[in-house]
Design a protein around this nucleic acid. Structure first.
Lengths: 100, 100
DNA sequence: TAAAAGTACTTTTATTTTCAAAGTTAATAA
DNA sequence: TTATTAACTTTGAAAATAAAAGTACTTTTA
């Protein structure tokens, strides 16, 4: 039986975090501000979700300066990649089971 | 562009509530206890999620007695049906966009 | 037959999560 | 030099989640 719901990733059930990963899947790296604009989130809100992904080790963080401005870039970790795939697969299984 | 994430239903992002609806899609009705057993949830937890679905008018509630025992059954409302479909469609779109 | 245990919930309380406002530090503009 | 902007981080309040406790019976057991 093994119901597909149990394969869902709690961390990725929140759409903001799923979106962040889906952006990082297709972009080698992405920075804080771009994420903020793309997702239209407040600074604090984005920072909180980022922190969750970071704590899970789903993303890697790189801080640097571009000229005189600080810049924080994120990349998907291998763990994050796996987790994302697994979650998407679970969603797919749920949909399939639904469509019959 | 119209990104599929924006079509997700906040209420259905929680897997318990998505599961409840997915059960009610294939079962004309289902009662509290059966849901509790199927989903392996505490009474309070299930009741809270049910209340959210009820407030959204996604489910209809019918209370009766079976012999001497109270029995609460739930059915999917038309609104719930629509919402479920829309959410699943959004998930499908997300997956598709991901698979290319 | 009285007390204990069980059923089917509901209500309350505690914890966790989410979100936005305010704060920080440094640079640039007026 | 004061104000504004940039790029975050921290704080605190509100909302969501989950489990424990409570309620109102009914059934079982000593």
């Amino acid at each position: 039986m093994s119901n597909p719901f149990s394969k869902l990733d709690k961390v990725l059930e929140h759409s903001v975090r799923l979106q962040v990963l889906s952006i990082l899947v297709v972009n080698e790296s992405y920075d804080f501000n771009s994420l903020k604009e793309t997702l239209e989130l407040s600074d604090g809100n984005l920072a909180t979700h980022i922190k969750v992904l970071e704590k899970e080790k789903y993303i890697l963080i790189n801080k640097s300066f571009i000229g005189k401005k600080p810049n924080t870039r994120y990349r998907l970790s291998e763990k994050g990649k796996q987790a994302f795939k697994k979650h998407i697969d679970a969603l797919e299984a749920i949909i399939k089971s639904q469509k019959q």
